[in-house]
Design a protein around this nucleic acid. Sequence first.
DNA 1: CTGAAAGCGCTTACAG
DNA 2: CTGAAAGCGCTTACAG
Lengths: 340, 340
Amino acid sequence: MRSRLPTLKIVAEAAGVHVSTVSRALDSSKRHLIGPDVLKRIEETALRLGYRRDMAAAALRTHRSRLIGVVVPDIANPVFAPIIAGITSRMSDGGYSTIVADVGQQAGRQDALIDELTARRVDGLILATARIADPGITELIRSGMPMVLVNRSSDGLPVPAVTSDDRLGMRLIVQHLAQLGHRRIAHLAGPQAISTGRNRKDGFVTAMQEAGLPVLPSMIAEATAYDTESGEIAALHLLQQAPFPTAIAAANDLLAIGVLRTLRDQGLSCPDSISVTGFNDMPLVDMIHPPLTTIRIKGNDMGREAAELLLQRIDHPAGPFVRRMILPELMIRRSTLTVS
Amino acid sequence: MRSRLPTLKIVAEAAGVHVSTVSRALDSSKRHLIGPDVLKRIEETALRLGYRRDMAAAALRTHRSRLIGVVVPDIANPVFAPIIAGITSRMSDGGYSTIVADVGQQAGRQDALIDELTARRVDGLILATARIADPGITELIRSGMPMVLVNRSSDGLPVPAVTSDDRLGMRLIVQHLAQLGHRRIAHLAGPQAISTGRNRKDGFVTAMQEAGLPVLPSMIAEATAYDTESGEIAALHLLQQAPFPTAIAAANDLLAIGVLRTLRDQGLSCPDSISVTGFNDMPLVDMIHPPLTTIRIKGNDMGREAAELLLQRIDHPAGPFVRRMILPELMIRRSTLTVS
DNA sequence: CTGAAAGCGCTTACAG
DNA sequence: CTGAAAGCGCTTACAG
């Protein structure tokens, strides 16, 4: 049987004072109100009895749960793990606990998850699941829930967001390829309903134009999801086009791996016949064959920053809406080569 | 400003009934007590006002938070993501929310995290951080907290655990290598303070003996942590021994990748000069060079099963202590080859 | 079938 | 500096 934890009342009786006095003594911001001898007695008693404040009961009184929720599309996707780690670490330092809600396979679960978090009276929400046009977010904004988007942003909504600078990331890729002498560069775009997909594609087009390179519609394929299967299918499509690309810039590492698979199936080699780049710098992409040139998006920083912004919004709900971008970093490895 | 959510009282007034009636009407296990017309009126009113039950307030009354905590050594380690996904998915189906506490870099944070979870009055705990001899767990058991260990287990403690069958996994590896004709098989063991490290090593020794192969002390090296750096160091040590191994069975994929790096540095090739195996089947190890022969540990199943067991312990705290093992699966890829 | 009341463990405005 | 009281939003044993 579980022995119930001691309450404030138990501690108060043991220390011979009133519960309100114990409550103050154990609250760092009110401790100064208590006389030194009484304070000492209370602290000793609390320690001896193993007292732990019941946060849920405190939340009921104060209307602050010090609990936040983060909704991710797929917790098992290595891209999100560092983001979650960054969030929980920063929130924990700020005295908050984090409930991670994983949408996983059934996309319809998102609403149910947000309901669950609402029932927990979370003080705020971090969403890693935003779509460019997202009615669910509009609704949340109306409810007044403090909220921050991370990794993916939405269009035209008054909501803070922390993302990697996806346009810049893709520009770094294009510049790198152009420098290697590539002119016929194809883009394997991500889902265009998600900001990462759209912004990386935008960045691709812009950077190509800046570099004076042609942007042919036949050189852009769209994957339906960020996974290797979609990458394989889209890559196959790209390879059937004329002119034949000398490089393929994928919107995501998994898509790039799909490209590598297709190349292998077709008897083509990377980087000798064709250069390939990814995006995200997932764990182990430096160990695949060939080690993948990609963009590091610094998920941990992104998570910390999103947590920071959420903390600000919780304390100042009427503050300005900040959109922050984390600088991406080009990781040059062996999947890109001078064009022959 | 945040508009407060409606309470039971608000709904009761709007529906013209007492709060207790609303409470019953909205509880599926008590709904049958309410007359059909009143029930309908309450349901409509609750829906119209957007009522969501405050779980924290309910928890205060019932002493059940329907919240559990899971403590992981490192959320960014791809091994744990599927386990967490399995846990949250099963717990969510059971009406529970999950707080993920990430120990991360500072190992000392573990106690603070458990304090935090205690303050939240979690109904139970799943620990993925157990050490073989773990005084912290002994203490938790004494507190009566329902608890389940996952992935890593502890010795001689009355606590349920769900792990992969690490001994069997390593036996599958050794049998596979033996079948390929290897006789001088080395083991790059994991940390021996953790059950995965110890059991995989045990499994290695046993399987070698079963196969009639020699177990030389010089053929076993211990890594200090499950990361590539430790793998590189231990591999270097192994390669300086005589007789020279024809295969290295690592206790973990990251260690195996460390081995591959060291081999490359030494100008040796895998699988031609030496076969290498991993453990865990992390994402992308099928794409590295060479694709890694390894053991799939089915993290998602492990997580679900751990959640299942925790649910049982919460409902029946005095039930028997079950230890369950998930069957591992040998994934044969190209890092292992017939001995030449 | 429905209501009235007590109480879960806290915090805080109000007194003194 | 400390105490007494009210109340946060629920649930449930007790009445009727």
